[in-house]
Write a protein that binds this DNA or RNA. Structure first.
Length: 526
RNA sequence: CGGGGCGUAGCGCAGUCCGGUAGCGCGCCUGCUUUGGGAGCAGGAUGUCGGAGGUUCGAAUCCUCUCGCCCCGACCA
């Protein structure tokens, strides 16, 4: 990274000591803030391979929590996990035309299978060329449907409900940590059904699973809707998505669920014998979310002091920082800290006792705040005497016009020991609710019902932008033109129950004046 | 794929214009003192200056080529 402007960074706290760790304020450069958070919270690093990242333990721990929550939901809806190959024969990709075209520009291809020492350097052995090149999966529809062909003969084999946790590669030209990397981790569900209705029901069911996960677990409010034909998954008849709004007003597609019709069953020739004895092609769905969700998490909740994690995804719920001067104090304080840790753990909470004596307490405070640990307990000699715990929350709901100093004080409470421990679950649950509420208010504040092009322009050029509910009936070309002018796109055509009062009903297109049955959401997007 | 920027110690950078054999801050190691919001002092370790070739008595510095990464745009989970 160059130093062109070397942005001013916050120095955190009010301490006199000089801090090395610092974050560019959001108000100054949102994009740099995002990168600073990832680096300072030790979520990920750049790697030796362009466009690929190293997910560090703290970042991976968050992904593991997401996996657990999602996997439980997949199992609860009748799905099983399986694993399919990383490599897809080139000919498989070609079987579904639109699908192949959609991914053609971003495929990594394996052409050789051996290295050779030539003149003292390790090189690809030219004699080891593969008969058929292998594509590193950008998604697995083709290879999975090839396998399904052998698994499905009759309606009794349906529905087939499979999910896989995997990595995929899409050779992106422009990458951003978590949001768009050449390789990423995800889950992809691939299901087969005997009827269109059943498949469409599955598409909706999994969309609901994603939305529920986003809102309840990530504390990220989302809007469910259909993608426009232009934004559909390559090879799908319909793509549904959940769209979230980041703190800068931009939309982030956070999950997709596709109705694939019979496109892939025809391409792979997967037929089943129906109850009526007729041979029919199977109906398919696929759905996925990726490590991009970690990006969504960061950009929804975090602040200029670092990461903020919803308790349900925090790898560590509570960190205990012991405070002492002399050796006898140290022994007593650590003894108490270990007891508090054990009692909280007994409630199923993840508790870290930070007993490193190479760092001063202040340094630990900053570090765990940076990493987004929801609750910190400070235990010192005074607390032992009084029988209290000093409980500090990473996040409390801001009040209008509140000074930073006030806010900081409000985060810290001294609570009788037993009460603090008994109330920890509720405290965390409250933070979870508050985070969701704060995100929802933020989004709603930047959401506008817009009826004229003038207002549209004002919203996106002068008022910071956000989600615009507008009527649209323009052509794809007009859509593109609008997109060039305002950098906005149609994020989705929201489902009926997602449309707020006041945005319902038919109207006329803001560009062409042609009649439109319902509003769409337009926004700038990641 | 176009435009820009940057490769010097683990990290952030100075040194490059004007060639003389590499430095600062943070981190790291050791010791003592510290510890309720980023500790202080003393001592110590660390470099194929991205790579190759050239000019020169001498190259981090000048020239040529090359590789890589980051940022910004066109395309995308």
């Amino acid at each position: 990274m160059g130093k062109q402007e070397s942005p001013q960074k916050t120095e955190g706290g009010g301490g006199k000591g000089q801090a090395d760790a610092s974050i560019t304020p959001r108000s100054q450069d949102y994009s740099q803030w995002y990168l600073d958070i990832i680096k300072q919270a030790e979520l990920a690093d750049y790697s030796a391979v362009r466009g690929c990242m190293v997910i560090r333990p703290h970042g991976y721990a968050i992904w593991e929590k997401m996996q657990r929550e999602l996997d439980d939901r997949f199992k609860a809806t009748g799905h099983q996990n399986a694993y399919f190959p990383l490599f897809i024969p080139l000919s498989f990709m070609a079987r579904e035309e639109e699908h192949a075209a959609g991914f053609a520009k971003e495929c990594a291809v394996v052409t050789h299978h051996r290295l050779k020492n030539i003149d003292g350097t390790v090189q690809v052995d030219p004699d080891s060329k593969l008969e058929e090149p292998l594509v590193v999966r950008p998604t697995s529809e083709t290879i999975i449907w090839n396998a399904y062909r052998n698994w499905i003969q009759s309606y009794r084999d349906l529905p087939l409900l499979i999910n896989q946790w995997a990595n995929v590669v899409r050779w992106e030209l422009r990458t951003r940590l978590f949001l768009r990397t050449a390789e990423f981790l995800w889950q992809e569900g691939h299901t087969a059904h005997a009827s269109e209705a059943e498949a469409i029901e599955e598409v909706r069911r999994m969309l609901d699973v994603y939305a529920d996960f986003a809102e309840k677990v990530m504390a990220v409010p989302v809007i469910k809707g259909h993608k426009t034909p232009g934004e559909r998954f390559a090879g799908a008849l319909d793509t549904l998505c959940i769209e979230a709004m980041m703190q800068d007003g931009k939309a982030l597609q956070s999950g997709t669920s596709h109705y694939l019709g019979q496109n892939f069953s025809k391409a792979a020739d997967v037929k089943f014998l129906s109850r009526e004895g007729k041979l029919e092609y199977v109906y398919a769905t696929s759905w996925g979310v990726s490590t991009r969700l970690i990006g969504a998490l960061i950009m929804t909740h975090s602040d200029d002091n670092g990461l903020i994690l919803p308790p349900k995804l925090a790898p560590i719920h509570v960190v205990i920082v012991p405070i002492y001067r002399k050796d006898d104090e140290r022994a007593r304080v650590l003894d108490e800290a270990a007891k508090v840790q054990a009692e909280l753990r007994a409630q199923g909470l993840s508790v870290r006792l930070d007993d490193r004596d190479t760092l001063q307490p202040g340094a630990k405070f900053y570090e765990w705040e940076m990493k987004g640990v929801p609750v910190r307990i400070e235990i010192g000699p005074k607390d032992l005497e009084k029988g209290v715990l000093c409980v500090v929350r990473r996040f409390v709901q801001e009040r209008d016009g509140e000074a930073q100093e006030e806010l900081r004080k409000r985060k810290k409470t001294f609570t009788p020991r037993a009460e603090a421990i008994a109330g920890m679950r509720e405290l965390l649950d409250g933070m979870q609710r508050d985070l969701y509420e704060r995100a929802r208010v933020m989004r709603d504040r930047r959401t506008r019902i817009i009826d004229t092009l003038d207002d549209f322009e004002k919203f996106f050029k002068h008022e910071g932008g956000g989600f615009a509910w507008v009527h649209w009936a323009g052509s794809p070309e007009q859509e593109e033109e609008l997109s060039r002018r305002f950098e906005t796109t149609i994020r989705c055509i929201p489902l009926d129950d997602q449309i707020p009062e006041g945005a319902r009903g038919a109207g006329v297109c803001i560009l062409t004046g042609k009649p439109s049955p319902q509003r769409v959401i337009m926004a700038k997007a990641y």
